[in-house]
Design a protein around this nucleic acid. Structure first.
Lengths: 331, 331
DNA sequence: TCGAACTGAGCAATCGATTACACAGAACAT
DNA sequence: ATGTTCTGTGTAATCGATTGCTCAGTTCGA
C-alpha cells in the first residue's frame, strides 16, 4: 500500500505538506499542491481511513441498523437514508439485527468501536442498547419504532393508520374483525393493535380478537389458523405487516377462503406485489423512502448542528389504499 | 472514552500487560489477569477498533456489496453470509450499490480504506472495480455474477435454469415464447437469455423475441408492452427476475390478459409472494441462502488458508417450480 | 554453587495520517 | 536599516492499541 510518506518522497516534499495539499490546500503553494496531486495520482495513493479516523477521532460512516432486512419496508427506508447521506458526504452501511437482541447489541458495539459518525436504528424492543451510543457521544436517530428516550425519531402514524384500516372494514359491512399483529416487544405491533382497538371502541364492538406473533410468514399462518379454528371465527382480518400477510394468504388458500368474498382483509404496509395478489390487497401505505430521507436529515443536523438541541419526533401520515381484498360481497 | 491506560492505572500495571491480559492471556499471571479484567469491567472499557485495526493492519469486518437491496434474492443471500460470518467471528455490513457503477466504486474504496478483512460482491458489470481490492490484498468472493478474473465465485446455474424454464413452456404447448431479461451488462441477464435461446434452438424455433431492460418493475412493464404491441406478439414469456415479473404482471393486468389462460409465464427467481399471485407463478428457484453460506465459506478459507490457492467457482443448481401461470389451457 | 533456560512484566517502537508548533524567508511598515 | 507580520513548509507529537525487545527474578540441571 502506498502511503503519505511515499507520495512525499515522490513529490520531493514532506508528509505534512502532502496531507495539507490533499485535504484542503490550506495555505499550500498552488504549484506544489499540483505536484503533490500528480504524485499521488501517479502512485495511486488512497488514504488509509483507519489511520485518519484514529487521528481525527471521527469518521464519515453511518450505521443503519434495521430490525429485518427481508422486510421490503426497510429496504425502501435504507435507500432513502443512503441517498441523503451521500449528498452530505457520508457512507452508509446496513446492519441486519434480525429481530435479535443479541445481534443488535453486537452492531451497537461495532458502531462505538468503529466510532461511527452516526447511527440510525429501528430498535428491536424497548430494552434496547442505544444508551451505549449515547454514552459514547454518537448521535442516534430512531426510525420506525420510537422509544421513551429523549432521542430524535421518525415514525409513521401506525395507530392512526390501523384505525383507518379497521374502520374501513367495518364500513364495508364486515362485522367480526380480528387483528393479527407482531410481537408485544415491537412498538409498531402494539401501536397497530391499539389503532385497531380504537376503531372497535368507536363502533361499540366488544370482542377484541387480537393475536400477537413474530413478524414472519409462519407467524401469519399460525395466527390465521388459530383464529379460524375458534368457535366464532372472525369474518375479516386486519394484518399488521407484509410478512404476516403472506402467511395469512397461505392459510386462507389452504382452506379455500377467498379474501373479499369469504373474508375481509386489510394489511399494514404496502408491498410491490400487493396489487397483483388474487384478489388485490387493500393496504395502509407508509412513506418508507421519505422516512429514510427525513431520518438522515435529522442525523445530519444532529451531527453538525447542536448536539444538545431538544430531540425531535417526526410522525408521518399513512394512506389507506383500497383494492379488492377488503370489499364486502354484499355491497 | 476509557482507554487502555486508564485500565492499567486502575489495575496498577502497564498498558502492555493489560492488552495481553484482555486479549489471550499469553503468559500473564492468572491473578493479575483477573485483576485487569475486573478493572476493565469496572471502568466499562471497550477497545477502540480503529486503533486496534491500525496497529494490527487487519480487521474482523466484511463488506457485502450487493447490486440491489430491493431484490429479495439478495436479502436471502445476505442472511446466509451473515450467519456464517458470525460463526467465524466476523461482522458483516451491507452496502447497496444500487446497480450503479459509481456507488459500487465508492464501496470498494471504502473496503480498501477501512481495510476490510474480506469482500463479497455481486459485481454490477464486467467493468468492475474488484482489481482495486485484489491490488490491496483484500480477499474477494463474487456472488450471483461471475467474472473472467481468477477469483472465487458462487453462482447459480442461470443458463440451465433458464433453459429448463423455456423447455417447460414449450412442452406445455406454448408456441411463440419471448424472453424479458436484464441489462446486457449484467452477466445473469445474459446467461438467462442464453439458456432461453438454448431451448429455442433445441426446438428448432428461429424467432428469438428477446428484450433487455433494467431489472426493475418499470422495465418489465415497458418490455411487455413492447412485445405485445408487435405484429406477431408472443404467446408466452420467460422473465429473468422477480422485479421484472411485477412489471409484467402490471402490464398484463392493464390489458386484461390472464397468465396461464391467455399467456404463458415462467419467471426466474422465486419470491415469497409468487404462490399467491393470480394465478400462482411458475418459477425457477435459486438457493439464495445457501449461496450466501457457501460464499462466506469460501471467504473464510481464502482469508485463513492459502491466499494463492487456485480460485474456485461454485455453481449451484436451480429448481423449476411449476405452479399455474405456465400451464397451457388446451391441455 | 553457578550458569542456562524460562517466566512474567514493562519500556518503547509502531501502524499512517493529522496538526500544533517552530522557523526561514519574503513583504511590509517605520 | 531594522523590526514586524505574513506565508509556506518542515519537525515532531499525537490518536490508542499491539508487540518486539529487554530485563529482573525464578527454576532447574550439572
Amino acid at each position: 500500500m502506498v502511503k503519505l510518506v511515499d507520495v512525499a518522497r515522490e513529490a520531493g516534499t514532506s508528509v505534512a505538506t502532502v496531507s495539507r495539499a490533499l485535504n484542503n490546500n490550506e495555505r499550500v503553494d498552488p504549484a506544489l499542491a499540483e505536484r503533490v496531486r500528480a504524485a499521488a495520482a501517479k502512485l495511486g495513493y488512497r488514504p488509509n481511513f483507519v489511520a485518519r479516523n484514529l487521528r481525527r477521532q471521527s469518521t464519515k460512516l453511518w450505521l443503519l441498523i434495521i430490525s429485518d432486512i427481508e422486510i421490503a419496508f426497510f429496504t425502501s427506508v435504507a435507500r432513502g437514508v443512503e441517498d441523503t447521506a451521500l449528498k452530505h458526504g457520508y457512507a452508509v452501511v446496513l446492519c441486519n439485527a434480525d429481530e435479535d437482541d443479541h445481534k443488535e447489541a453486537r452492531y451497537v458495539d461495532l458502531a462505538v468501536a468503529e466510532q461511527a459518525a452516526g447511527v440510525i436504528i429501528s430498535p428491536h424492543s424497548d430494552h434496547t442498547h442505544i444508551e451505549r451510543l449515547i454514552d459514547a457521544g454518537i448521535p442516534v436517530v430512531l426510525i420506525d419504532r420510537g422509544l421513551d428516550e429523549p432521542v430524535d425519531s421518525v415514525t409513521a402514524d401506525s395507530r392512526g393508520g390501523a384505525q383507518a384500516a379497521t374502520e374501513h372494514l367495518l364500513q364495508q359491512g364486515w362485522e367480526r374483525p380480528a387483528c393479527i399483529t407482531g410481537p408485544q416487544s415491537a412498538q409498531t405491533a402494539v401501536q397497530r393493535r391499539l389503532g385497531y382497538e380504537d376503531a372497535l371502541k368507536s363502533a361499540s364492538i366488544k370482542t377484541r380478537r387480537v393475536v400477537h406473533r413474530p413478524f414472519t410468514i409462519e407467524g401469519g399462518r399460525t395466527a390465521t389458523a388459530g383464529l379460524l379454528d375458534r368457535n366464532r371465527p372472525p369474518d375479516s382480518l386486519f394484518v399488521a405487516n407484509a410478512a404476516l400477510t403472506l402467511g395469512v394468504l397461505q392459510e386462507l388458500q389452504t382452506r379455500g377462503l377467498r379474501p373479499g368474498t369469504d373474508i375481509g382483509l386489510v394489511c399494514f404496509d404496502d408491498a410491490p406485489w400487493a396489487p397483483f395478489i388474487d384478489p388485490p390487497i387493500s393496504v395502509v401505505s407508509q412513506p418508507a423512502y421519505r422516512m429514510g430521507t427525513q431520518a438522515a436529515g435529522l442525523l445530519v443536523e444532529r451531527i453538525s448542528g447542536g448536539r444538545d438541541a431538544p430531540p425531535r419526533r417526526i410522525v408521518l401520515g399513512t394512506d389507506l389504499i383500497v383494492r379488492s381484498s377488503s370489499l364486502h360481497p354484499a355491497r
